[in-house]
Design a protein around this nucleic acid. Structure first.
Lengths: 344, 344
DNA sequence: ACGTGCCACTGACACGTGTAACTAGCCCGT
DNA sequence: ACGGGCTAGTTACACGTGTCAGTGGCACGT
């Protein structure tokens, strides 16, 4: 998109791409008539024979309207911009994401994913604004600033929605309360009589957005009790897990909240291989309620996260677009609930 | 995108969105000068003081160029269209996909994901053509026809790339040879002395694209030997797995290729719970080489699938765009290799 | 005085589309 | 004969941008 070339390149297959003017010429009518016919404009009456001639001409030439020209003329589009992340998200999130896209499309929006690798917040906002989207739904990779929001709104965006662990001024903020996940998990462990509680922090980049708040929530739950919380960095591989398990006794922990079920399964296996009894010596709690967690022995306790339906969020976007004056409101996106199985 | 509204809606925040003409007015120069300055056009010399005035005016107004107008004028864009699927794909595929997008962006393409839910092949092609992408990379959800390819090329697409289990005429076809996955898995089981081999077929919709060819490959491997292949429909939940395990003895199978590691883990657990010894009575092989498969006991044997790097594919797209006349060629995308662990 | 060349910039057009405003032709009532 | 209304269109403009061709103004050589 950056630097347009100097001259229009030749079409390889010889023929230029047909425009409505070509259709008009072939059908022997004016270009306006073509537009009226092809858009089924009800205010203008065109005779049936003419309509047929136009349609046939369009068909013969393989005419397809030019979306850019159309939205330029119209002064607005129905594009919803979704800055994409390259975060290695889990199945829960990606299912939500797919459903969200699908629902937006049902509402006749054009969903455009646009990545902004290595761009500053304001720079990214400017790049997005070039596309003149009617709405921007930021999914957290780029932390949108108030300045960035201003740029977007000035460029015609009727709604800016942020989805993240905390709200952004001037936007419809959808807050995924990750802290709550850590909180309920830890509270559950404390209530079960555990006192020294480890919290796994994935070392994989891009997950800090989630793991930080979860740790914070765990600390919140421990506050006011005699339990303590210990952060445990962990890579998602067996070596790292075995290493952590090997120094488990010196850490003196009797429970662990393992970020999610995948890390929990990895760590639980390493603990068992190191000779620690689960849940007698160590209680293990994951998150996301994956099916696979139920296959282990003992069955993995977990935090079930009920994410808002993609469809609901799509409707919220639609409302925000139609009523741009409505005051932006912050809303919580997920409910967390412990599912106790055998590992805790 | 479909039906533009009748009149331009008022901008809510009062001020209209600034154009280069506004910048020109404020800076006291012509619009052409603004364009030259902001695009750093080297062929035209503009004095430094003027440049500064223009930049300051643009900054003050918060001017952002209009991508649609720009590409309309230029006659082409650098948009790569990626029709998205809502298929519940695994981590392997989604990692590839992310990397692919990222690499395209590094090559200065604008990646647009555009879903076409419930559209016919030709209808979808027409919708894509409206956006005048420079390339289309179809990932298999919509089976592109020769007719559809023709529409896209006529609309100016310089490259059409299909990614699927089989090629499409007139396109650069990237074939993911799923059959090979089933073939190597089954060959391995046969060589290990197994004779009655089950092949799990997920009942989840959208996976048929992969499971069909894998079954076919398994049959190919069994041909010419005295081994037989039995398809086993399975839902991804415990009930379905238990049900299948319960009638295992009457099926008389001594091995199973379970589509992928997740289904394999699910089924293996159910078999063990039903009192069958793995691998003594039943050998189990998955696919995808997930980390979690190594955590089970016995460790899960699997088929490791080396997918082409997203970066490589992005470079192929770039080449195809720059040399549209080069003959479309079909290329295989993945290599499959058995990783024998303990479950087979 | 005058042509030449350079500098710094401007005027005008094109891209493809949608639609408001207008018009030519016809019928009809008075 | 003439205005009015309907039908079936057409003409003309606007959207925001990039860029070719042109144009004053100035210095300079003769």
């Amino acid at each position: 998109m950056s630097q347009p070339t100097e001259h229009t390149p030749e079409r390889p297959s010889g023929r230029a791409v047909p425009t409505s003017a070509d259709v008009a010429r072939l059908a022997g009518v004016s270009r306006a008539t073509v537009s009226y016919v092809l858009n089924n404009t009800s205010a203008v009456r065109i005779s049936e024979p003419t309509r047929r001639r136009v349609r046939e001409a369009a068909e013969e030439l393989g005419y397809v309207p030019h979306a850019a020209a159309r939205s330029l003329r119209a002064g607005h589009s129905r594009m919803v911009l979704l800055p994409t992340s390259h975060v290695p998200v889990g199945p829960l999130y990606s299912q939500f994401f797919n459903e969200f896209q699908w629902a937006l499309r049902r509402l006749d929006y054009t969903v455009v994913q646009y990545g902004s690798v290595g761009l500053e917040a304001e720079e990214a906002a400017r790049a997005w604004a070039e596309l003149r989207p009617v709405a921007v739904v930021s999914l957290g990779e780029v932390q949108l600033t108030g300045q960035g929001v201003e740029i977007l709104k000035r460029s015609g965006a009727r709604a800016v929605i942020t989805l993240g662990t905390q709200g952004v001024e001037g936007t419809h903020a959808l807050v995924m309360d990750q802290g709550r996940v850590g909180e309920v998990a830890t509270a559950h462990l404390v209530e079960s009589g555990r006192r020294r509680i480890g919290v796994v922090i994935p070392e994989e980049p891009g997950l800090a957005m989630f793991s930080g708040p979860r740790l914070e929530g765990a600390r919140r739950a421990a506050r006011g009790t005699d339990a303590t919380v210990v952060p445990l960095p962990l890579r998602y591989d067996e070596e790292s897990a075995n290493e952590l398990a090997a120094r488990w006794r010196e850490l003196g922990l009797d429970a662990v909240f393992a970020y999610n079920d995948e890390y929990a399964m990895l760590l639980m296996r390493a603990l068992q291989d190191a000779g620690l009894a689960v849940p007698e010596e160590v209680a293990v709690v994951g998150a996301d309620d994956l099916l696979l967690g139920r296959l282990l022995r003992p069955r993995l306790s977990t935090v079930r996260i009920d994410m808002v339906l993609g469809r609901e969020l799509a409707e919220l976007v639609d409302r925000a677009v139609r009523e741009p004056e409505a005051p932006p409101r912050t809303r919580s996106l997920l409910a967390s609930q412990v599912v106790r199985r055998e590992s805790s």
